[in-house]
Design a protein around this nucleic acid. Structure first.
Lengths: 117, 117
DNA sequence: CAGCATCCTTGGCGATACTG
DNA sequence: CAGTATCGCCAAGGATGCTG
């Protein structure tokens, strides 16, 4: 039978949580244009803490959305890149980004209207 | 200038948070096929508490994604429906649902592989 | 550079009880 | 039926300090 996101015990619900996660979305978006180092990601994603970045990267790696490649060099260098599975999510998450930016004005207008009542 | 989701102070970041929110996604999805009453939503979305349902509905109403219509009857009846803005989000959120269900197996396989290392 | 470990706080969220 | 109000917890997440 089909997985059902409305069922809290269904794994698809957890998957939905992960791909909807604020930090996950931003990490995947940042990796859209290719391989990035840890520091690149940290610098690009404003407001993310080291802890959350590491945690998000591990979660995405565990779920098969990105790869983590450690280069034995001094200083250390770790590259992150989307897998095929991760890339299959790109249209969706960039769609979210586009929606958020392109409808921001409407949302803010709606808020102003709501708060003024 | 364009809103930028990478900037934590940009409103588009908050919008992204809202439309990515687990409960928001499920509420919008549930309203995809038309008007629903409070109880319908509560019953459909497994695991949501009254508090979170109300809170999510208020947030979505405030942001202009759905309308709340109170009917003065006994017993009370409150209808929720997507606005045009909310409907503009439908393709995206149902895309998320489809992705979550259709890639669930791959994600679980990746997890098993990761955990077995 | 790329983390890991630890402490600590906040507020998200559930549970419960009550109401128009 | 569709909420509001209150309490209480615990886990998400930030800040700091340390390391291979």
């Amino acid at each position: 039978m089909e997985p059902n996101v409305y069922d809290r015990k269904c794994g698809s619900r957890q998957v939905l949580d992960r791909i909807g996660d604020r930090w996950s979305v931003l990490v995947v978006l940042t990796l859209a244009d290719g391989v990035k180092r840890y520091g690149d990601l940290a610098r690009r994603i404003d407001g993310i803490s080291q802890k959350m970045l590491t945690q998000t990267l591990r979660g995405l790696e565990r779920d098969g959305l990105l790869t983590r490649e450690v280069h034995a060099s001094v200083p250390p260098r770790v590259d992150y890149a989307l897998t095929d599975l991760g890339r299959s999510l790109l249209d969706l998450v960039s769609g979210l980004e586009v929606w958020a930016t392109s409808h921001l004005a409407e949302v803010e207008a709606a808020r102003a209207r709501y708060d003024a009542r």
